[in-house]
Nucleic acid binder design. Structure first.
Lengths: 339, 339
DNA sequence: TTGTACGCGTTATCAT
DNA sequence: ATGATAACGCGTACAA
């Protein structure tokens, strides 16, 4: 194990003091151009590398940013992380990944663990609607920037990057109406999350705005799973007056719906149109490609990272709360294209 | 900003010295049971949390592990990362993510950047077959454990976790033969990577072992993209004596092949059987579900993490090189099920 | 412009 | 069993 060269080593070699070397390397104004060049030159020759840990200990900045998501092996979150990493890496930051698996305990322990590692910020997507708010307060108290993406929580002074779920749902539902659907069902999800509440609201508003009848019994909550989509769709199809359109808040339940509809010998989109949400890769790959609402996750990641960078660059005094809302894009595919 | 309580604070309160407190907290043997309890008790009361940075600076251990992958928004790598994170988090380690986008420059800079952040280990999947080996040496010299997963490089003293690509390919090809295929093509990929070389070799061996004719013109390299699969399959279908089976080293090219075959009015699996590789989620979702070789990525991640943990727990003296090879599992679906 | 001296929070090595 | 002190590597207020 070769020992790393420190500023002391290079100071010794140059008959200078460590302080001078430090200043030279940090482009401190009050240093002669000569010594600056000399120091940098020999630093290069001696393969000097700044000890991040020491600097972090001294300055309190670790140049690490924590990212907390329910899970990483989901296309959406993986893509957001990709965006975050790409934006932060060039600025010298590293991204630390934590998964919560939707467990409140893990959400709390992750935050504490990141706090303990002295990250410079935490970017997270709420995974548990009822996680105690105290944990977030502990972040605020320690002046560690916290930024929500996708699944946020209404909190004073916290910036967030989300998409306009209401509008995405509204557009999708309106699209179904444009395709001639008269009775549109909605596969919803836990509405204690804002995103699902908003999608529900957008769906409802579109229904009402276009003279259709809003029927609460056509809205069913479930987990984002194929089988759930099948199960619920089965009940829809057994109605005496079945729906002719389905707006799903998840691509997986949408897929389940499609499978169930086919199993019943009905045609898509002729008999029933289906639109999903998230634009998961598989929706594009199917023979019967699935229309879906794209959330531009990479862009969301980039913007989240940018919001963080802004927050750390700004003087601590003024606290800005930024709420960035991305406009989702409806990707129209075969599952809802009648004309 | 509340100041964090340090061991000095709790030492002062107890009329002890910081050293004693440190020892008590670290369960040092030579400390009285009384003071140990007392210290731990008051530490709890004062909300003491160990400063990881200081400990890292002192001990040289950061409890951070770097993970380098081509990209995170791929199901395979995301799943491996998931496995790694789940294994490491309970042990107090954090996972730092880096992406290379298959660029040699980024591969090198990522390693250096992680080295600079003083990670306790680097887990990586080679993304560029010709990355200069020097970078890896710099890791070895600094005694930082390096472990390859999936895409490895043959290097002395480096542990790796891979799957038996040869066997996976062999099994898949044999399966096609069992289904009655007589002329099997192979959609390959850059064979400067071991994994693709091995898959090619497994395919070839299965052909030879079962009395079929090996025909090099039925093997074509391409990137792992749907369109490439289409393009190459088109040339296959235009042969006077077209193949009746395709083994693809990628699920994406397999999908492209399937699309092209259908477009030509041929039936799957009756006319042509197709098997892919990786078991991407979408292969299961299709109406015509795609047979594929599963690489158990989460398991791979866990084993990689475990190999790392072992390596750090062992005395630095003895260097163990572990080569873990997972057995892949062929998932047989509609695209290759004739009987 | 450069040097001196100290602190960041912890642990390890001496003593006592 | 506990205390005193140094050291990890860096940055910075203060002095020169």
């Amino acid at each position: 194990m070769k020992k790393k060269t420190t500023i002391y080593d290079i100071a010794a070699k140059l008959n200078l003091t460590a302080a001078t070397v430090s200043r030279a390397l940090n482009n401190n104004k009050k240093i002669s151009e000569n010594t600056r060049k000399l120091v940098k030159q020999t630093a290069l020759e001696m393969n000097y590398e700044q000890n991040t840990l020491a600097r972090a200990l001294k300055s309190g900045k670790s140049f690490n940013v924590g990212v907390i998501v329910p899970r990483v092996d989901s296309n959406f979150f993986a893509s957001v992380i990709r965006g975050i990493e790409e934006e932060l890496y060039p600025k010298g930051y590293h991204v630390i990944i934590c998964q919560t698996h939707n467990q409140e305990i893990l959400e709390t322990s992750n935050i504490n663990s990141l706090l303990n590692a002295q990250v410079d910020g935490v970017l997270m997507s709420i995974s548990n609607a009822k996680t105690n708010i105290e944990v977030f307060d502990s972040l605020l108290q320690k002046q560690v920037p916290l930024i929500f993406f996708d699944r946020k929580r209404e909190m004073d002074g916290i910036s967030s990057v989300t998409i306009d779920d209401f509008n995405g749902a509204y557009t999708a539902t309106k699209h179904l109406i444009d395709q001639g659907c008269k009775k549109i069902a909605h596969l919803s999800n836990d509405r204690s999350f804002e995103i699902f509440k908003d999608r529900y609201a957008g769906y409802k508003q579109a229904i009402l705005d276009h003279g259709l009848e809003f029927d609460e019994s056509l809205v069913v909550e479930s987990a984002s799973k194929i089988d759930e989509g099948k199960r619920i769709t089965k009940t829809f199809l057994e109605m005496q007056n079945r729906p002719d359109g389905i707006f799903s808040s998840s691509d997986f339940t949408a897929l389940g719906a499609i499978q169930e509809i086919k199993a019943h010998g009905l045609r898509i989109p002729q008999d029933i149109c289906v639109v999903g949400f998230s634009n998961e890769p598989f929706t594009r790959f199917m023979d019967l490609s699935i229309s879906s609402v794209d959330q531009s996750p990479i862009e969301m990641g980039r913007l989240t990272a940018q919001a963080f960078l802004e927050e750390v660059s700004i003087k601590k005094k003024l606290k800005v709360q930024k709420k960035i809302v991305l406009q989702p894009e409806l990707i129209i595919r075969k599952s809802s294209t009648r004309y």
